[in-house]
Design a protein around this nucleic acid. Structure first.
Lengths: 362, 362
DNA sequence: TGTGTTATCCAAAGCGCTTTGAGAAACTCA
DNA sequence: TGAGTTTCTCAAAGCGCTTTGGATAACACA
């Protein structure tokens, strides 16, 4: 592996000149620069990043911390699409992406570690809680960051990119109310997550506007797995007062909900309506001439791109204050919603029988 | 941010001693080492990784390259679980994980770049093709690597961790044959992927052993999205000679297949049997007292752990030759399989009608 | 021709750590 | 007590790059 000294010697220039040529400084003539670039290509010289990072004090790396949830050691399925979006932008700007996989409880320590070891120039905070301690921590550490989401109860300004979750869910709820639904279930994310709270609020807003009291038995919090969607749907439909419509926070539990409805022989879109929030995951597109699910959609990949742009600007000092982006998630009507049926139609024989089978909530 | 010079001065030792104490060299007494560690904790000193990396010549980082497929710009959904497994091991050994997101066509260049810039000590190759050029490339670059999968037509030894795909799929096919199925569809991964070829071979082996000629109209290659599973299943069932059973390479297209069966009013597990390969994704567990799908299961997270262990050993030179791990994927019987029905049962009125609706293969 | 400007290039001093080659201190044993 | 060992500590030389503060060359103008 050739180093700068040898390379510059070979092409008859000093290391300084070569470094300047390579890094685009104006003190070097265009002719020289071209010559240097071309020779580097020809001789296969690439500057050693380790050395450059020490010399400049910049890590040229953005950190992401991927927590494994304690409950199921689960990776958030939206993570990979977010990373795909962000990573693309990093590459364009010559930044690398460092990923730390840590257990939930070690997460704060992991941020502190990244900061003090100096291996990243900035980090992205994923999945903020209603009152997330990481925001203050990073502020204290002086490490630039951007939050994917927000943290309602953390005061002060910071960079964030979020979906208008409250609006999206109030809109979705209203849509169902307009269709005549009065008992509407909500299969939400984990309790304490900021997005889950905002979605709950949106749902509550719409119900309240129609003078409907929310029923806590119709609201669920949990990690968004397929099985969670299945179990909660089963539980709701087995209750004495089943909903005629369900709001689901992600397409993955929606798969489980669909399975539950199917197992019970209940028609999706006619007997029970479902509206989902769709993160537009690349391997799970809710598409077609008429989408499968009626959904509020917001691309998580796009959010990744935006987060990256904001963070890179912050690092490069090209930013005056803090920046925010609030993405609207429009409602698209699909095949999974329809007018509320009269309740009695649901109580036919087949279904009553199906409900007699025991169900467990795993 | 305190540096070594200042820290060692403060605690009345030389930088050398402190460095040795921190890095576990034997030339320093246990008492001194304890003192150093404790003072570091107390004064908040952490060595600057950038400097350490330059000095040692080690990057203490493993690289993963995440290609975005050209077709759908898709991220492989098994990626996050693999990373979760591998990342855990890296953390334990004090290694970082660098992730590069690149377009399919830039992938080779990305490996070359990682190697010459010296930002990683080794890399993991994901999704090898039948004849994958990356293996030779990395050999030439002299960068340690491990392959998640294998590359059938690449000669020579290299580290790999793979599932016994051929055995798994021949076993699954045989299981269906034993149930009396004779027309068995295969919804496979992208053409050219090594795992897809091995699975096809396993499927072919079993058919051949029963004297059954494979029907190319029943074999599909594509990116494993939900829609792909839906579209291929629809296409097969709309054909003049529909299968009575389907093998599916991942749980995600299996969701789409289930949707298709449901839309057509065809019973899963009685009218049409389905066997899947289950990567044991954390957000998509095929579980329950009796699993939903009959499946050959192999945890991709475990594969991630194994890959990490092998690669770290290779980097530390604690490895004699090349290492291989072949994971067996046992078949677990679930609710999605049953004896082959007589064909005529499938051709009832409802289904005929459903098939009249137009379907598109997106 | 001499002076002032620009356009180029260079030597050398870091960046903060590791590690070599030796020296000082502590200990052992005759 | 002194020589030989072992234990601990240190000064200094890198690692390969960036960047400062000049030096040199090239050019214009009077």
């Amino acid at each position: 592996m050739m180093n700068l000294k040898e390379f510059s010697h070979r092409i008859g220039l000093s290391p300084t000149t070569v470094s300047r040529a390579l890094n685009g400084y104006p003190e070097v003539s265009e002719r020289t620069r071209r010559k240097v670039l071309e020779s580097a290509e020809r001789l296969g010289y690439t500057p050693n990043s380790r050395a450059a990072r020490l010399a400049t004090g910049r890590a040229m790396t953005i950190g992401h911390i991927l927590p494994l949830s304690k409950e199921h050691e689960m990776v958030n399925p939206i993570f990979s699409d977010f990373i795909a979006g962000a990573g693309e932008q990093y590459s364009k700007s010559g930044y690398d992406l460092a990923l730390s996989v840590v257990r939930d409880e070690d997460e704060e320590e992991a941020y502190r570690d990244l900061a003090t070891r100096g291996v990243v120039d900035g980090v992205v905070i994923h999945g903020p809680k209603v009152e997330d301690p990481r925001i203050r921590l990073l502020g204290e550490l002086g490490l630039p960051f951007v939050v994917h989401g927000r943290s309602s109860r953390v005061p002060g300004e910071y960079n964030w990119v979020d979906v208008n979750n409250r609006r999206a869910f109030s809109r979705a709820t209203e849509f169902l109310l307009d269709l005549g639904h009065r008992r509407i279930g909500l299969i939400n994310g984990l309790d304490g997550m900021d997005f889950a709270t905002r979605r709950l609020n949106g749902y509550g807003d719409a119900l309240a506007a129609h003078g409907i009291a929310g029923d806590p038995e119709l609201v669920f919090n949990g990690e968004m797995t397929e099985n969670y969607g299945f179990a909660t749907t089963m539980q709701m439909l087995a209750s004495r007062k089943p909903p005629t419509a369900i709001l689901i926070s992600s397409i993955i539990p929606a798969m489980g909900a669909r399975r539950a409805l199917h197992d019970l022989g209940i028609g999706l879109g006619d007997e029970v309506s479902v509206v989902i929030h769709d993160d537009d995951l690349s391997y799970f597109r809710n598409e077609g001439d008429v989408p499968i699910f009626t959904a509020t959609r917001s691309s998580v990949r796009e959010a990744g791109r935006l987060c990256a742009d904001i963070l890179l600007d912050a690092i490069r000092g090209a930013q005056d204050g803090r920046r925010h982006v609030l993405l609207e998630a429009d409602l698209t009507v699909g095949q999974s919603t329809g007018p509320a049926p009269a309740m009695r139609h649901l109580l036919d024989r087949d279904r009553a029988e199906a409900l007699r089978r025991p169900q467990s909530l795993t």
